[in-house]
Design a protein around this nucleic acid. Structure first.
Lengths: 214, 214
DNA sequence: GACTTGCGCTACCGCAAAGTAGCGTAAGTC
DNA sequence: GACTTACGCTACTTTGCGGTAGCGCAAGTC
């Protein structure tokens, strides 16, 4: 979670310099944005209604509009507030490419691998709404996430580690595809397989997100 | 393309047995359904309007409603009319698992690999609309498609071929992830890499489609 | 205490899009 | 030719939802 941006107040009457009067109560912004993201995941962009966001949060709809000018702005803020994936350069080197990749997979970003995948599905619909929204998703979610993996991989290639590594771990693929037929990640599966599976999944779903046909 | 189902006429006045009067002109059903699918891909379910489907097809909106009772019915028909992936049992054995998998990848189902992926993206939003629609997508698209790969793979495992095969071809993975950063499949890439990439992509996107959180 | 501005509420506007009604006409069956 | 039903058209109703107006009150600053 990040601070919800200067809230770009929808239309604030500008009193020069100093502000008086009752201040914004930003204590519940995080809750609003979290609920927005939840709804986005459950229903997709078009079926998110601000009435429902307001109801869930216990805020008045008008309050939402005091902070974000449009629904699109609110959703963008929610996406931004979800934070960004870890940066490759700041991650400790765990000794092997594989370990480094798995660390990213298991990072708590977007609630961890399970929920992350759900969010991707929700975002897929949002990319069809507007260029602006699609751009935000790309620049805030897709690109940075793929970038981590790419960086880790390139680093490993430069070290000459890569090929051997992949050759060693790819028997897993033989299990991955049949496992997919369950269509659930929650079913029991050996941990290593799961991890590798999710990493591929995440990446590829992102690629699909970037591939809207507009 | 399949015959567009008995069209389950929205509400037909039942004259017993024999029908007289001007018959339905089903010659353009395929066109209607194709345009519906196109729009679904371009815009996502919510932004498909029947006015636009009608306009594109050159038919009157009321004509659409004479054939499909609701928008949802029309979209379902469009998905059904898109046909099903090839069945594993009917595919010729090309000698290696890899060749068999690639044959599926390159099958013309849903317009071939490129367009197929776009359609998946469009369907992702539709899975959030209703249980019924989600079920159709799962049973008509997701399940059968994953099933092909699964069957081919299992067959290969039973033959003892699998592990060796995958080990031999997985250096590709080292290229796949960085290549994804382009977020386009249309960029130039060596054919074998592309094929393998797309096969993974297709499969995994499908898994994501099956994973709606409703 | 005077002033300012956010909050919650209720009511409302505007618009897009699903779905319908009814008409004149086309294309069939008997 | 009489009859029936689809087609295209225009106009309409309904609904949901984004977004706004204005009020009484809360929570701050001076």
């Amino acid at each position: 979670m990040e601070t919800p941006a200067p809230a770009s107040p929808a239309r604030r009457t500008v009193t020069n310099g100093q502000r008086t009067g009752r201040p914004y109560d930003h204590s519940s912004d995080a809750l609003i944005l979290a609920n927005t993201l939840d709804l986005l995941v459950e229903r997709g962009y078009e079926r998110v209604t601000l009435d429902e966001v307001a109801a869930r949060t216990g805020k008045a709809k008008t309050t939402l509009y005091r902070r974000w000018a449009t629904k699109e702005d609110l959703v963008i803020a929610a996406i931004r507030a979800a934070g960004r994936p870890p940066e490759a350069d700041r991650l400790p080197d765990l000794g092997s490419l594989r370990a480094n990749l798995l660390a990213v997979v298991d990072s708590p970003w977007l609630g961890g691998p399970q929920r992350r995948l759900s969010i991707f599905a929700g975002l897929a619909s949002a990319t069809q709404v507007s260029e602006r929204l699609a751009d935000v998703i790309r620049s805030e979610v897709t690109e940075p996430y793929v970038e981590v993996y790419r960086r880790l991989l390139h680093r490993s290639i430069d070290d000459g580690e890569t090929t051997a590594h992949f050759a060693a771990s790819t028997d897993l693929l033989a299990e991955v595809i049949p496992a997919m037929s369950t269509h659930r990640l929650s079913t029991s599966r050996e941990p290593v397989q799961r991890d590798f599976f999710v990493s591929v999944v995440d990446d590829v779903v992102l690629a699909a997100l970037g591939m809207t046909t507009r």
